[in-house]
Every structure is written in structure tokens, then in C-alpha cells.
Design a protein around this nucleic acid. Sequence first.
RNA 1: GGUCCCAUCGUCUAGUGGCCUAGGACGCGGCCCUCUCAAGGCUGCAACACGGGUUCAAAUCCCGUUGGGAUCACCA
Length: 477
Amino acid sequence: MKTRTRFAPSPTGYMHIGNLRTALYEYLIAKANNGDFILRIEDTDQKRYVEGATEIIYATLKRVGMNWDEGPDICGNYGPYVQSERKPIYAEYAHKLVELGGAHYCFCAQQENDDADEENAVPTKFQDPCKHLSLEEAKARIANGEKYVVRQTINKTGKSKFHDVVYGDIEIDYDDLDEGVLLKSDGFPTYNFANVVDDHLMAITHVVRGNEYISSTPKYNLIYESFGWTPPIYVHVPQVMKDAQHKLSKRNGDASFQDLVAKGYLPEAILNYIALLGWNPGTDQEIFSLSELKQTFTAERLNKSPAIFDIAKLTWMNGCYIRALPFDEFHKLAQPFYAQTLTRSVNEEELSRVLQSRIEVLNDIPAQIDFVENVLDFSPELYNNKKMKSDAEVAKQALSYAIEALEKQTNWSNEALFETLKTLAQDKGLKNGQILYPVRIALSGKETTPGGATEIAVILGKDETLRRLKEALAKLN
RNA sequence: GGUCCCAUCGUCUAGUGGCCUAGGACGCGGCCCUCUCAAGGCUGCAACACGGGUUCAAAUCCCGUUGGGAUCACCA
């Protein structure tokens, strides 16, 4: 049987990290087995629908290279792939389930979900009086125009057992299950019903979802059973947490995929990082491309306990990805940041060369290059550096020597400039640092800079370099 | 509260009874390299929640305690 997995988000807003990770695992399970990865939109809750949310889902999946084989926009043999377009299917199966004894019609008023005292609420199990209505009577009331829902019927007693790939065997007492609504009064199914019907009809073999669904899985199995269908292989994954107590959620404004991208994280790095949140390959390898992941991933190595999302490690990993980028690509990615901070014309290639190993996220760029536009105001004390044996007095000398030497300089490459200043230091009986350090300070006005004195000179160009040196020297006099 | 699930360095984790005086990675500290800062190399600090068993031997198995999470909607 061909492996088929599905990512079934509901279009309620941004794509958050936990969601994306679930999608990744679905994708990897399918692709590791030469199977199909299906995208299904679960929009049965019309109240929560957010305009544009499906587009974000598409864009995100495409951006990270997780292409789906079937979906709303890619015809397959199991469509439609949007639940709101499948409404008649659910109704048909809901009524069938009633006939089969797995559900019943219910005419009760909607239950209040009072979350006022959710902390110590002692929920009482809902005992549905309609359960005991005869089918004829129920049908008569429906024919009479009464509003109804289809509610699951649970008559079994004892323990429900099922196997989960990550959690192993789980037992839940049938008594603890409630008879939830399957088909709402508006004719739409609830998730509880739609996912079962769709997963079966779409021939899904592996269901990957958050472990909050563990406790309702027996209810789904009961539905499969009533229909005589085979349940899928379950892969429940632990939550992605913000800290030990709270899970990552979009409601709290926690980072979403697009937020991270906007901050200068590379999609490949984000994907790599979340793959490792709760999964490990059993080796020390940490950097994985999507195709490497496809070859290595096995659901059996998924972890059971929740993982805290650690931005520091993601940042490190992003730095690895930036450094591994071909130079041209990095240069291209850096362009927008130059455009937003620089008006002066500088050697941007050299700037990128110097920056590539020094930033971890693209958004670090502006702060790193602030001095390029204008030399920052600084006090002469900045020339003081014990290790470089530099101070304002040394600087005064060094700067005037440097100006003299550089004015004659024609080859404005880093190597040539470094050679010139090194020889200059030797000639004047100074240490290299005694020339280079003051020059770098004069050129930047910063204690630390990406790149050294000569690299900055290359970035700035000859005219600006000499102008800054002269200005700095004048300030010292 | 009932039920289910989870529990190794601050964080992500390796570990499936002896290879563990618990390994790797991030972060943090130090050193080296070095025209500052990065990068790179080396190195240090740092954990089996607790208590009982089982066993010649337990981070690993069992029980309990504690702590955390999930779930109990016409949301998914």
C-alpha cells in the first residue's frame, strides 16, 4: 500500500512553528517511503476562517520546498481537498453512521462552554437524553423541521487500546470518552468527524498530529470500526513549547515562520532547526537539507517529551547556513539591507565579503554597517588600546603617516593596502597594530567593526578613506 | 477534579541493564589564531527530579512520590 500522509491545517492565521513541524514530519514520512503528501484545508469552522490564511499556508510550504502531490490546487483522485467543498459527503456518512449505530440524532440545545473557571472546573459528563430516542421518532422530528446535530454514540465499556508510533500502546477507558457532536446543526462536520471520513476516503496511511489528540483517538477508532474501516497509523507528536509551561502559540504573538523570515532567518535553517526539535537522527549530524532529511528521517526516533523552542540555537544554525551560502547568493540577500541603510556609494562586494562570516541573521546587517554611511562621533579615548599599544598620541602620528602613504596608493585592494601599511609600520619602527588600530578607529569611530582597517578602507574607497583619516587627524590636533 | 501522557546539563538531545567517573550541539567561560570583531581550532563549567524495589550490575526495568503538560466545546 502506498504511503500517504496529509497536512491538514485550518486557515486561521499565520503558520506557526509547531504546525510547520507537523507538516515536515508528514512530508518526510511520505517521502521516505516514496509516498504522497497531501494538503487538505480544514475550514469547517466558518467563524474562525481568516482571509488570506490559505495563501500563507501555500507560500510557506512552497518556500521550504515541501511540495504537495495533491491539494486544492493540484488535482488528485481524492478531491476536493477543501473540507467546505465536501459538505455533502460528511452529511451522507453521518447519516450512514446513525444507521450503523455509531451515532444518533440529538436535539439538545448547544452546551455552554463556560471557561470562566476552567482551572478547577469539574466537568460533568454530558448524558444525552436523545440517545434513547428511537430512530423513527428522531427522523420524524427532523422531518418536522427541528434543528438537530449528529452525535457520536458510545456504548462500549472497558478499555480502548491503540498503538502510537511515538507513544507506544495507549489505553483509555470508553467511559471517559464523550459523545461529541459529529455533524453540527449548520450541516458542517466537526474536526472529529471530518478528519476520520477524509482520512479514510483519501486513503491516508499515517496520521501525524499534536499529542493533544491522543485522548480523542479512541473516539475516532470507534468511528472507523462502525464503518468497517481500517484506522491509520498514528504518529502523535509532542508540543513545541515557548518555555516549560507554555506552548508556542500565535495568540501570544510568538514567532511564526513568516516572522522569523522577516527577521532574516533563512527558511532552510528554520526547517532544519525544527526538524531537530523533538527528533534526532541518532548521529551527531545537525545540519540537514530537506533531501538529506528525507533519507534519514524515521518516525520511530521522534521524542515523547515536549521541546522548548530555543531561538539562540536557531540563530546559531542560521549563521551556519549564511556562512555556507555561495558568496553571490549572500550578496544578493544582503542587498536590501544595504539599500535601507546606505546612500553613499561603497564597495558592496567587499562589504558582503566581510559580513558573511560575521552575521547570524540578515537583520544584523544594519547595526554592523552603521559606520559605513557616516563615521560615528567618538572620543579620542577610543584610540587607547593596551594590546595594540595604541593611544591618542600614537594615533596622531599613525594617521599622518598613513595619509601620506595612502595618498600614493594606486592598488586599492585589501592585500595591497595591508602590505603598504605593514611596511609603513616597519619603516617607522612601529608595531602593525599601532598603525592599523588607529586607522580602523579613525575610519569607523567604532571599537569593533566587521573587518579590519584595510578591509574598511576597501569598502569606503580611496577618497572617503583619506577624507575620514584627515578629518580624524584634524580632530586630534 | 477524572483520565491520558511526559521527566538526562540553562536549552535541543545521545543513551533500550554492563562500553556511562553519562556523549554531542547551542549558550556561557578560558586559551590559540589574528589589523579590532567574527569565523576557525583547542579547552572548561554544567544533568540522570526524589524515594523504594528487581538484579552480580540501573540513567536504562517495576512501584510510589513530586513536578509538568494534554484532555473533558456544535475549535481544530
